[in-house]
């Protein structure tokens, strides 16, 4: 474990906590894309298949349980909870996210480390996570004004993978491992997708103005 990876995991955890706070505090999930939440639940369920087979550390297992349970809980909340489900912007959240799933399956079947059940599912989860934020970014552009907690949620979600890239660079130079090119490539694409959001987030923070994404 190095400081970059710990910072990445804590930032990721913080983004989940901010999202839970937003839904709990405002009793609303307006501005949140259910499709992105469903994609993230799928990412965690397919990446953490080893939860019960490979024990790496208490930290690793606890964080996996936290990410899986929080993402599933948020999807359940947005789909079935009588109060919050009514606040979901169903007509704005229209991204055809099953296309992202389909493309990720094809990519994982074509490009993977080893053709094993575990590695193909792992590659699928990496590709899917790289694009999972798209429905959320599209929803933010459509819904115009972005409430603070939602903006912070997206910001921390984007920042975590940037820390992971620093972690891979660090491990490249300090350990005799190198990270899979799949992680590098998908990690860069994932972080790049946030680039314009980061720009508008910084501008709104600098001008102390409401976060506005151009339509």
């Amino acid at each position: 474990m190095n400081i970059f990876r710990l910072a990445g995991d804590m930032t990721h955890l913080f983004s989940v906590l901010v999202l839970l706070l937003k839904i709990y505090a405002t009793k609303s999930c307006s501005g949140i894309s259910l499709k992105t939440q469903e994609l993230y639940a799928l990412v965690f369920l397919t990446r953490y298949l080893d939860l019960f087979t490979d024990f790496i550390s208490v930290y690793n297992s606890v964080m996996k349980v936290v990410f899986i349970s929080s993402s599933v809980a948020i999807v359940w909340c947005m789909r079935y909870h009588p109060l919050t489900r009514r606040t979901y912007d169903k007509d704005l959240d229209t991204f055809r996210h099953y296309i992202l799933v389909g493309v990720s399956i094809i990519l994982a079947l074509l490009f993977h480390d080893r053709f094993t059940f575990r590695e193909v599912f792992w590659a699928f989860s990496i590709y899917l996570e790289a694009v999972a934020i798209l429905p959320q970014l599209v929803l933010l552009q459509r819904s115009g004004n972005v409430d603070n907690l939602t903006g912070q949620y997206v910001f921390f979600l984007g920042a975590y993978r940037a820390f992971y890239i620093l972690n891979w660079i660090y491990r490249y130079f300090t350990e005799n491992h190198y990270s899979r090119w799949i992680s590098w490539l998908a990690g860069f694409v994932q972080t790049a997708l946030y680039a314009d959001f980061f720009y508008y987030y910084f501008v709104s923070w600098k001008n102390n103005a409401k976060l506005q994404l151009p339509a």
């Binding site: 990876r5 990721h12 790496i56 990410f67 992971y164 491990r171 992680s183």
Partner: peptide, 10 residues
């Protein structure tokens, strides 16, 4: 060092 990073990350 040809071995790839183990799946020890989240």
């Amino acid at each position: 060092w040809n071995h790839v990073l183990p799946h020890d990350e989240l």
